[in-house]
Amino acid sequence: MRRFDYFRPKSLKEALELKKTIAGAKFISGGTDLIVQIKNRELKPSALISLRFIPELATIEINGGARIGALVTISDILQHPELGHNYPVLTEAAKSLGSVQIRNVATIGGNLCNCSPCADMALPLLVLEAKVRLQSAKASREVPISKFFKGPGESCLASNEILTDILLNPPHNKAKATFLKKGRVKVDLAIASLALLLEMEGGICRKARIAAGSVAPIPLRLSKVETLLEGAAVSEDLVSKAQHLARETVSPITDVRATEKYRRQIVGVYVKRGLEKILGQSLA
């Protein structure tokens, strides 16, 4: 592996200062994506600035809603009692991410900042309409997660910013959400994945939030499908239309993991299965 300098700042301020002064430096949290990219020579950073020694980044706070520090590991999320209770869809996604060894190291912020279309944690955050807090030396801003991703490996994060927190709204007692993921085997990157949140009232869908992974350049909200469902009674016919629309909306690619065709197919199946799972009835 290529040589690089390594820094471990103790505060956000120090970290941002280092980033400003060292050309070609990258932030590192768990490193489960970054180190692989460096080894594969896709990235050649001059220095790595570790965020693991900034204590406030690794905390979870339940405050009606929730604030999850960017350096919280996926295992931390799984072990947190209230987080799982309030946002079970988050734990479903966390459980599917990598292996135990990866989950012990990988962080939620890293998973987002890597900006992979298959980022497992992005989907539940998209349907929960989470916000991310981006901090620069001078200012802090909050961005809806749906505006965060710009393309594979690209986000709205400026080079002088750090993603510090993920902010979740208080859980809605009528909302139910679920997460589905297809890999080639269980420990795998998603070849297609889906998160779905539904608020039902008297058989009518009041609110639908759907996000799909690995089927577009970014983790994608399927707004057209949401609109189709909202205000309607969920019938077999509607589900069939929703499946069709979902398949049409996404723009997957063919690669070593799966074909474009298969990914589309799975998204359709998962729209149906997600609805079935939440509504507890067969919609075949």
Binding site: S99, V185, K186, D188
Partner: peptide
């Protein structure tokens, strides 16, 4: 070789 790593060369684990 297109999948020269365990990320894309999949073998069964205990979960399979």
């Amino acid at each position: 070789i297109l999948n020269p790593n365990f990320r894309d060369y999949k073998i069964p684990t205990a979960q399979e």
